[in-house]
Design a binder for these strands. Structure first.
Lengths: 343, 343
DNA sequence: ATGAAAGCGCTAACAA
DNA sequence: TTGTTAGCGCTTTCAT
């Protein structure tokens, strides 16, 4: 430590003294206010640079009652979908000099609730979130909204909360996925899914059911397998069990890790994909293309969803958007690969 | 909005008025100070709960000159290594009620420098970072340190900055990776790497060279291929070119996306892995196991590196650690899979 | 055990 | 165009 340690912290008072001006003038000059002379502005800027002045954000936030900070609340981060979404959000907020606090709920309602209640402190100006899968009571969300902090949901939304929502059409995507398997020759298609989280998973299940129904196929309940929402070997066991008993020739996996578990299960049972079983999955892994065999996917536009969420949030924060809450449905994309090829 | 909109914001003054106490007493009671009576504490807590009091963090941070917030500065987030590291960091800071601001440098020195300079504002109490690959001038980092904010590096560290560092032994890992290929029968091993970022990549390159040298193999410079640090098709072209001309029978890929590019390049050239070319890669993708064929990896303990970084940072913040900066080397793990099997 | 008062650093009326 | 002043909401001496 040569110079510039904690003691000689330079603030507006320092600058004011240095230039024999008032802090008010400094403040205005730094924010490029119209009623400060060009020459003064120059002097202030120069001094600020020279003395390494950095404004204290807490003082500023306290005074302005706003923080240029948003919260991103998501279940997990080591998940390609959410990571890409964060990238999308960041692409919008970084140029605006906003900052983002990350909160991981680990899909736990309690944690989510306590995080939301903390945010009522005014720590952030707005929130972008994807709710935990076991969130049923939404009062913590409504309470935060009542403080005037705008919330934008993406992907995992709360049906009974009025807020902007960015989603993909899960019903339709599942319908298309299932139809794709039917067209590839499957006669006995199972859905492998996880419990909880109605707004997405049940939509996917409905789409799956509808596609079968529209093709005159009745679903025995055994066609739907519910796994745990963890990437673990237990799921592989459940899937193996199902493959051996129900003998499906097609699998729709509703989340990423279920496809990898399905691959492992097939491998252990010596079932060939796609000859014995065809697999399609909702996912965002860029590596899906080089799985063994390449996995047919329903790809959610994660980056763009994040980007849209941030744009709408900024619209609200700036007052540019004052219309009633909107629900934006973004298209998913079916990318056919070898895991569903007909022969 | 039924109740509780912005106007009736409840602060300490509200509580004080409600209970006919001073704000000083409220403040102490809420922080469970010893010189407040039990009964008073109860009353204060009850009122706080009843009126939904949430302390204003900006006022508190301003007054205390500390924020219970840290910055996590990383090149990318849609990268399994960094995501897992964030998880590790979060596992330590969340229980301590700390908050984390995420900054993505996109591997750009300019962005990194401007982010660091912003942090001199006192926005955060400490920083955990992995530096951009093209960062050479480290003055922005030293400047921030001089303000008294502790910085802990992980993975991508700055050699010439005195700070705590959490790294893996890249030299040794590359040595082991290369030896593994030699033991699997490779005679002509190439290193596929990216430019920039000396502390890690050059260590990996050195380890690769040493392993070859120790086995009496001279490296023609063509054995080292430098790609761009983007996941793109251009790299696939570069790798194809190299595979066709140098005809290596073994590839050490220094970063994740180069392995996937190598897979694609081999596929396009109809080269079979591992029969024609064996591949090993530094990575953290959980899906490596189900690639086609399963990819042999050198796995960095991403989660634990993040966790350690956070623990050391907290040690500094709390004054528990006052020793000179330490460099913690964490072991990588070689996981042999089919992409390097001998036949 | 409780309270009065000062002030963290900044911003925004309002005055000059 | 610049300055004065009064806080933002909280914490912390120092009194009482």
């Amino acid at each position: 430590m040569t110079s510039g340690n904690k003691s000689d912290k330079v603030n507006m008072k320092t600058l004011a003294a240095e230039l024999k001006l008032s802090t008010a003038t400094i403040s205005k000059a730094l924010r490029d206010s119209y009623d400060i002379g060009q020459e003064t502005k120059q002097r202030v800027m120069e001094a600020a640079r020279r003395l390494n002045y950095v404004p204290n954000v807490y003082a500023s936030s306290l005074r302005r009652q706003s923080s240029n900070t948003i919260a991103i609340i998501i279940p997990e981060i080591a998940d390609s979908f959410f990571s890409q979404a964060i990238n999308g959000i960041e692409s919008i907020i970084a140029p605006e000099k906003y900052h983002s606090l990350i909160y991981l709920t680990h899909d736990d309602y309690q944690r989510e609730a306590s995080m939301l209640s903390d945010l009522a402190s005014g720590r952030v100006d707005g929130v972008i979130m994807s709710v935990a899968s076991n969130t049923e009571d939404t009062s913590h969300i409504k309470t935060l909204q009542e403080t005037g902090i705008p919330i934008v949901f993406f992907d995992r939304v709360c049906e009974d909360v009025n807020a902007d929502k960015i989603i993909t059409d899960d019903f339709n995507s599942a319908y298309i996925a299932t139809s794709h398997l039917l067209q590839s020759g499957c006669k006995n298609i199972s859905l492998i899914t996880i419990s909880g989280f109605p707004s997405i998973l049940s939509a996917r299940e409905q789409g799956y059911r509808k596609a079968l129904a529209d093709n005159g196929i009745t679903i025995e309940e055994t066609g739907i397998v519910t796994c745990s929402n963890k990437y673990n070997t237990e799921n592989v066991g459940i899937i193996k069990e199902h493959l051996s008993t129900a003998m499906p020739d097609g699998i729709v996996a509703t989340v990423e890790h279920l496809a990898t578990s399905t691959y492992l299960a097939c491998d252990e049972l010596k079932l060939k994909i796609p000859d014995d079983v065809k697999v399609i999955c909702f996912t965002n892994q860029i590596t899906a293309a080089i799985l063994n065999p390449p996995l047919t996917t329903i790809l959610q536009p994660a980056y763009d969803m994040g980007k849209q969420a941030a744009e709408i949030l900024f619209g609200r924060l700036s007052g540019r958007i004052i219309t009633t809450e909107q629900e934006l449905v973004m298209p998913s994309q079916l990318i056919a690969r070898a895991s569903t090829s007909s022969n």
